[in-house]
Amino acid sequence: MNNILVTGSSGQLGNEIIELSKEFPANYFFTDRESLDITDKEQLSTYIQKNNIDTIINCAAYTAVDKAESDVENANKVNHLATKYLAELAKANNIKLIHVSTDYVFDGKNFKPYTEDDNVSPNGVYGKTKLDGEIALQEINPKNSIIIRTSWVYSSYGANFVKTMLRLGKEKESLGVIFDQVGTPTYAKDLAKTILEILPKIDNESVEIYHYSNEGVLSWYDFAKEIMRMAKLDCQINPIETKEYPTPATRPHYSLLNKSKIKQTFNINIPYWKDSLDECLQKLGERR
């Protein structure tokens, strides 16, 4: 039976993996920053050796996109250096490694869905540190390692756009939501299930990159409208432009991911975003 280390298990994706783990038997080691400091290579190495880890799912990330602009050192430690250490230990110990990355490695200026081979050019610190982590992993190149880039993650766990909209939809009569940023949400449960399903099938000499989000295309405005409709909240959603809502970090205007590679390689079906949103709202008890 596999000994699987799941880092960042207190986050959205980590929590969904915890919930699904009983359907995919293995010895799981769920850690967060309190129980394992992945930015400390020595501590990480000791933990891996002590527990005979043979698989790592790295869900840990510094995801505070705006804060990262002024907290470069910590963002770099978690997103770049920790990934480098995981890659080095994976190579040294013949460990299978799944690393989760982001659409923010792209500048958002594309006009068609990004493939894994498209040029990367992050706009801010978060995207740059995540890309540095990807590059370190590719350069170290441990066998049976993959990178999964995803976008607009939400879940019944943690803080995210869906839960924020539900809260504001109950508090306010109207809300302005950005309409000129386009992509696809990812229900963390769907991504977690995909990771656990493809795990036994991963068999590659060099690091492979895959893209994963739910199916479909929409703006944040469309997303908010559908949340209000499904939850039957009487809150008017008004479209606004990105420039009307300035933030420290620049968001990609277009971050649609082409998912053909992961679907074909592992023969998986990806749920449509509305179906997944429906499921999440039901779980939260907010579907009306």
Rank of each mutant, 00 (worst) to 15 (best):
Y85D: 07
S276Q: 06
S10M: 02
Y210G: 04
A249P: 07
P239C: 07
S21G: 08
S70Q: 11
G127A: 02
G124E: 05
S206N: 15
Y104M: 03
A60Q: 03
D40R: 09
N93C: 13
C59H: 06
A90T: 12
P246S: 07
E134D: 14
K91H: 13
F223Y: 15
D275W: 00
D222E: 13
F266I: 00
F30N: 07
N94P: 14
N141Q: 04
R287G: 06
Y212D: 05
D222C: 08
L5M: 06
I237G: 08
P252M: 02
N79S: 05
S255Y: 07
P200Q: 06
L86S: 04
T164P: 04
V162M: 14
K143F: 14
Y254M: 05
D132S: 12
G216A: 11
Y221Q: 07
K232M: 07
F266C: 04
D54I: 03
I140R: 03
F111S: 15
V207Q: 07
S35I: 09
K274C: 09
S260H: 12
I48H: 06
M230A: 01
L199M: 13
G8W: 00
I18K: 15
D132V: 01
V78N: 04
T31G: 03
K128Y: 09
Y28K: 05
E215W: 05
Y126N: 03
T250H: 01
L137G: 08
P239R: 03
F111N: 15
F30D: 02
I140V: 09
T31V: 13
F266H: 03
R33I: 14
P122R: 02
E205S: 12
S101I: 01
A68F: 10
V65Y: 03
D275C: 01
G11K: 00
V72C: 10
A136E: 11
N58W: 03
I95R: 12
T129K: 05
T115E: 14
G183Y: 11
T115C: 13
D234G: 00
G133P: 08
D66M: 10
D118Q: 02
T150C: 06
N15I: 08
Y187K: 07
F24D: 05
Y254F: 15
T242K: 11
Q181D: 12
A75C: 13
N160R: 05
G14A: 10
V100C: 00
K163V: 13
I38T: 12
Y104I: 00
S45L: 05
R167L: 15
F29E: 06
E197A: 01
Y212I: 03
K41H: 11
W152K: 01
S156F: 11
I147A: 02
Q12R: 09
Y254P: 02
N141E: 10
Q181R: 13
A75W: 09
L137M: 10
Y62N: 01
G8Q: 05
N93F: 15
N2L: 12
T184W: 01
V105M: 00
Q264E: 15
Y126S: 06
K225N: 13
K232H: 10
K261H: 09
I147E: 01
N119S: 13
A60E: 07
S145Y: 11
A87W: 06
V162S: 10
V120N: 00
